[in-house]
Computed example of a mutant assay.
Amino acid sequence: MPSNPDEPFDVVNQHDDVIMQLPRHEVHRRRLFHRAVHILVYNSKGDIYMQRRSPTKDTYPNRWTTSCSGHVDAGETYDTAAVREISEELGICIDSADTLDDVFTHSPCRATGYEFIHVYRLVWDGEITFDPEEISEGRWFTPQDLEADMSAHHDDYAPSFHLVWELAKEAS
């Protein structure tokens, strides 16, 4: 379903401590710090699954981005959000975040949309069934093909993905 502008988000301070809750639209309009997760899904051959955001998304519609990403709901942990998001967006059901590898965390900045982000990695050779409300297209890229496409079509990729991709390469 489309994003709810009145969905409550935890607003956090510079230490990632929750300080209040406000509606999604207000948090984004005021560029307040909040939380999100990104999951990089690879297959056993080392290809990465990428999603093209739906044209109905409120930020960066139709742009390629992380395999799976989403906001941490009010009162939710990063790990719980990662498990929920990967199920909702890609139809991948995992028992717990223990199945995911922690890659890195990053503090809020313009590229992250003022979000503290936790980035995870999952190796998955099973079926992926993406949510067409969230994602208009999904496909596997070799890392080399992804790099070439990002170079040739820089603006076809969400700013957060550019940051996540560079930092994930450094972390591996």
Rank of each mutant, 00 (worst) to 15 (best):
S151V: 02
Q144S: 09
T112K: 14
S136H: 09
S44I: 03
T66K: 01
C93V: 12
A171D: 04
I39Q: 04
L32N: 08
D131H: 10
D98N: 15
M20I: 02
R30F: 02
L146K: 04
L90D: 03
H71G: 06
R121C: 04
P143Y: 05
P55L: 12
T65D: 07
T66G: 02
S151E: 10
E85W: 07
R24A: 02
T56H: 13
P23I: 05
E127N: 10
P108S: 07
V83M: 11
E133W: 14
L32R: 04
R84M: 03
H25M: 08
L167G: 07
I39R: 06
F161T: 01
C68R: 09
S54K: 09
M150S: 08
L90T: 06
N43C: 02
N4G: 04
M150N: 01
A97C: 11
T80R: 14
D79Q: 14
S172E: 12
L32Y: 10
L100I: 04
E26S: 00
M1N: 08
A158H: 04
I128P: 00
R110D: 10
A168H: 10
V41R: 03
D16T: 03
M150I: 00
L163P: 09
F161P: 02
R30C: 02
R110A: 12
D102M: 14
S160F: 11
V37G: 05
K169I: 05
S87L: 08
D101H: 06
L122H: 03
M50Y: 02
V123I: 13
M50Q: 11
L40M: 15
T56A: 13
V27S: 06
V83Y: 04
R52F: 04
G113F: 10
V37A: 05
E166A: 12
Y114N: 14
H118T: 10
N62P: 00
T142K: 10
Q21R: 14
G46V: 01
I117W: 09
E89W: 02
D47G: 00
A148K: 13
K169R: 14
R52D: 03
S172M: 09
D58Y: 13
A82S: 07
R52H: 11
L122R: 01
L40R: 11
D98R: 15
G70M: 12
S54C: 09
